[in-house]
Amino acid sequence: MLALVIERLAVSFAGLSSPVLAIDHLTIAAGERIAITGGSGSGKSTFINIATGLEKATSGKVFWNGADIANLSESRRDRWRAEHVGLVMQDFHLFPGLSAVENVLLPARLARVADAALVARAHELLKIVGLSRPEQKIETMSRGEMQRVAIARALLRKPGVLVADEPTASLDADAGENVGRLLIDMADEAGSTLIVVSHDHRLIGRLDRRITLAAGRIAADSAVEGVAA
């Protein structure tokens, strides 16, 4: 379980006058379930990229359990992310030609950490997300099934934080409902801090806290009313 502290963060891109993201101070407690909302261009994606170490902050500090990932080299951020972050994305980013379980194991295999225990866990996770055929080729699955494979992949290495970027946006209502519930249950079960970027009100309604971004700044930060609605 990881806690996030952000201090005097600024992210600017060359050619843009104002920073795309500027956060003076933000704390997310370990095990918290956060929703990030905001319009397009509000800095949501940048926030995710910075928090997961996909992008380097121009200035400021990003502490996860006290360790500043903003100072790490690209390779070390990659390694840190592989160990501590589970990512679920709108477009799944599953790899055609591979089976469900191969997709779940791919990043671990590429990082050469996939041992027998991890393989067993991959099969178990697929069972938990409700997929009974781990050898099924990914391109033959429905979108809802694909996102469940992606969730299993994100949780494989028991990440301290689970980050989901619009996990339900490309799914129909039923599948979205299903995926949203799975995310929360499984983050709970793995003991992961959960950060979800979403516009899906039903999903947001199930989370603890909602941070709204606008023009790269935190516009609102409040507890979600009607928790577990």
């Binding site: 996909l54 990659d78 592989a82 972050v85 990512l87 791919l106 590429l110 992949r153």
Partner: peptide, 8 residues
């Protein structure tokens, strides 16, 4: 691949 933790 990189985002999901594959080393460079």
């Amino acid at each position: 691949l990189r985002a999901f933790g594959a080393p460079r």
